[in-house]
């Protein structure tokens, strides 16, 4: 049942019109725009690289959030999922996982390449991948919470960003700190642990809040 739902969501996201790959394209554009704004100077790009990559990942992740529940809510499959044998919390978790696989994972694969564009030091690249791997699941799960709250609204997209972005601040802070310390040869273990702690806490608790919001929107 869980696997079937996951497969269905992945299929919906990856087929034509599903928006798969858009996040990576957006990420690329963002990383290409920054040097135009800041200047092509390596000295200027290198210190801001980790921050740009993390902010870029965050914004790219935001793009596809409203699709997590919107389509199912429109065509009524959400009502079926609510009465399905798996609890709604589980549905939320599976949908967040599907979002992470289709939006977060491609970003993680692409990030080292985009790091080259921003002159990210080679020593920082493993830490960039590691921090994104640990941090982005929290982004997807918090995004699912925001999507659950705004699912019934006609113009929920902008509101969704307004609600979700402040929730991303702790993840952003610790994620960037890991990469920065990795680039400067410091010890990234401490922020990494905080990052992992936040992700673990979010995955454990936020599905309940998101499911509660969904139930309100379904009645």
């Amino acid at each position: 049942m869980v696997l079937a739902l996951l497969k269905r969501d992945l299929a919906l996201a990856t087929r034509a019109g599903g928006g798969f790959g858009l996040a990576v394209a957006f990420f690329l554009i963002l990383c290409a725009l920054v040097p135009f704004g800041v200047g092509p100077d390596t000295g200027a790009l290198r210190p801001i690289g980790p921050g740009i990559l993390w902010v870029g990942a965050l914004l790219a992740c935001l793009l596809s959030l409203d699709r997590i529940f919107a389509l199912d809510h429109e065509d009524g499959s959400m009502d079926l999922l609510a009465t399905a044998p798996i609890p709604l919390e589980g549905v939320v978790a599976v949908k967040a996982l599907a979002h992470w696989i289709t939006s977060g994972l491609p970003l993680i694969v692409a990030a080292p390449v985009f790091g080259l564009l921003l002159h990210l030091p080679g020593a920082a690249t493993p830490w960039l991948i590691a921090s994104l791997l640990v941090g982005t699941p929290a982004l997807s799960m918090l995004g699912a919470f925001g999507a659950a709250i705004t699912v019934g609204l006609r113009r929920g997209g902008l509101l969704l960003s307004l609600l979700v972005l402040p929730l991303y601040i702790p993840t952003l802070i610790f994620g960037t700190e890991v990469v920065r310390r990795g680039a400067e040869g410091g010890d990234p273990a401490t922020p990494m642990l905080f990052l992992a702690g936040i992700t673990a806490g979010v995955i454990a608790l936020v599905p309940f809040a998101a499911a509660a919001a969904l139930r309100v929107n379904l009645r």
Binding site: F145, I149, L163, P166, L167, I169, P170, I173, F174, E177, P191, F194, I198, V206, A209, A212, A213, V216
Partner: peptide, 20 residues
């Protein structure tokens, strides 16, 4: 629900910012 989740994250941000 937003207020509940927001409170946790406002507090979390407070300490994350300190670290940052």
């Amino acid at each position: 629900v937003l207020c509940l989740v927001g409170s946790v994250f406002a507090l979390l941000s407070r300490y994350a910012v300190l670290f940052w």
